[in-house]
Design a protein around this nucleic acid. Structure first.
Lengths: 341, 341
DNA sequence: TTGAAAGCGTTACCAT
DNA sequence: ATGGTAACGCTTTCAA
């Protein structure tokens, strides 16, 4: 802002173009001159102006993360915190920074995407929690805007994505509950249309096929509060489940509160397995069994690919990358732990 | 990027300057022309290029949030998630976006600040968890870089800050525990030098003066893991505390795990009050008493002021703003709840 | 009221 | 190998 290339050029007695070359590490510049320029830069603490540079090469040095949640819906969400933290960690030594956007509701979301696409404020986008019939993705593709999807892309779409095998993970989680002796295993997902949720419900159904008669499926909005309300209702009904697979730890918190509300004990009266394996799982009494998504790996793989796309570097492997999950068994899914003694 | 003012100008048969004027809401432009231009913009979905604009008026449209934590230290931290979420919420309808930076360790931190200051990549900074002898603040002041401090500024510094009265809050929390019948109330803070921690310890000491002989003060690194380890040690010693004020919910989680480790019951054997009042407080069995910092208010007040500083708008009131705290009493600090029955 | 033109600090192309 | 110079898209001053 203060010291420009022009200034450095005057000081080092060279042209501004040469200063620019030194900066970009151009080989064909006389070593003596290069040193003179570098010295001048150092002495005057020259720092290139990001904005001018960015205007010139249309590179903003920014990665956008768009989360689609209602106002205040991100509050205390451990998954979100973890995701963000890992991304920052990854970008630490890269010439990119993280820009956070929240899209509260459908219309607002479109506004954000429009702005992103037209103004090119960010170089690329990390998309989370996509929904199956998502027009966003189509728009981004049309505009050839670099992005990577965290989650399950639509079957037809040729998009780059990284995801866990949620169908499989939910299947294993359900089987784990059945193996633990629960006989009425249900699942609590988000509203229909949310891909992660739909996938996990599919896995659940696959697991109970032939093992359990009733398909016990409920839906709730994201967040512990909504989950608590919904769970309160069906947990007090006569044909309540005796175990639940829950979409995420955050919602599982709500379910645990609901269980307390209606006086059900975990894991005796209600077995629980959720997803994300955030630190809160260790907090609840006895521990909350949860499927680890290995977010660190997801982020690493996703960001690496996104940067490749942005910088037009070669990409190897399939467009859809799968990161393995891991079921962490804790107290909430082990019925009658006292029999162990 | 695609459609520029130049294009709109051609289409609407006016000069590019006029397009710019229409955009900035200049009064002295013929209504008929204004309409023609607006129509053209609408039809061609014109969006101003942020970078060009930003190069021109040296405004990036970005607010930076710098958190000083070790690698991965942000993981699952509910306070961080809440803070971020509130900031995004606040900026939603403002022409600014949030850029997240993490400074892992002293040296890295200085590198970030240097870059910030020189390149002016962001228009202003939100600083959290400052440390008492902090050279960052001095540098920012010297460069007249807009920033707002979340926390306790150094006494001498003329910096804008917003904070809770941590001394007072900790004092009330401690008194609450004493009033609940605990007789050996201790405090677990972060390492010495962290302002929030020091302040709360001061409040603790003020509270027990004349009420309790021993000052029971422990320190641990941030995070539940470190807190758990430290707490494990002193909770198994003979002169252990029977109640604790803990620096934040996150560390309190660790303490609860430690209590379980050494077979102490909360709140019977160990009373607990922590800070931040994140959602996890409702999760733990019986609930975790916690002091709400009213983050939403803090963020609102802080961002409002920061934007005023950035935009050189008038500022009223003191440089140091205090947001009230509120002790939310839950099960963890109510000894022998059965006597109520 | 409108248009022409000068930058903002870079990068990159074209001469030399 | 180096210098001159034209963009990049916008805002703003100066003329008309």
């Amino acid at each position: 802002m203060r010291v420009t290339q022009q200034d450095i050029a005057r000081i080092a007695n060279v042209s501004q173009a040469t200063v620019s070359r030194v900066l970009s590490g151009d080989e064909k510049v006389e070593p003596s001159i290069r040193d003179r320029v570098l010295e001048a830069m150092r002495r005057h603490n020259y720092q290139p102006d990001v904005r001018a540079r960015s205007l010139r090469n249309s590179r903003a040095g920014l990665i956008g993360l768009v989360v689609n949640r209602p106002h205040g819906g991100l509050n205390d969400d451990p998954f979100f915190a973890s995701l963000t933290a890992h991304i920052i960690d990854y970008l630490q030594d890269k010439p990119y920074h993280l820009c956070l956007e929240m899209a509260a509701g459908e219309s607002r979301e479109h506004a954000i995407y429009d702005e992103m696409l037209r103004t090119r404020r960010v170089d690329g986008l990390v998309l989370v929690e996509s929904e199956a019939s998502d027009s966003r993705i189509e728009r981004l593709q049309q505009d050839k805007f670099p992005f990577i999807l965290l989650g399950n892309p639509m079957p037809s779409a040729e998009v780059h994505s990284v995801d866990n095998d949620n169908v499989h993970a939910a299947e294993l989680a359900t089987i784990h509950l059945l193996d633990s002796g629960y006989r009425r295993v249900g699942i609590l997902g988000a509203r229909s249309g949310v891909t992660v949720s739909d996938d996990r419900i599919t896995g659940y159904q696959r697991a109970i096929r032939g093992r359990q008669v009733d398909h016990l499926i409920w839906h709730a909005d994201f967040g512990s509060t909504a989950a608590r309300q919904t769970a309160c209702e069906f947990l007090s009904s006569p044909n309540r489940p005796d175990a639940l697979v829950v979409l995420d730890d955050y919602m599982a918190m709500g379910v645990m509160m609901a269980a307390r509300d209606v006086d059900l004990k975990v894991p005796q009266d209600l077995g629980l397995v959720s997803f994300n394996d955030t630190k809160v799982c260790d907090l609840v009494d006895g521990g909350l069994s949860s499927v680890s998504l290995n977010i660190d790996q997801i982020v690493k793989v996703a960001c690496d690919r996104l940067l490749r796309i942005i910088e037009h570097r070669p990409i190897s492997g399939p467009r859809r990358l799968i990161v393995p999950t891991e079921l962490k068994v804790r107290g909430s899914s082990v019925r009658h732990p006292e029999v162990r003694a």
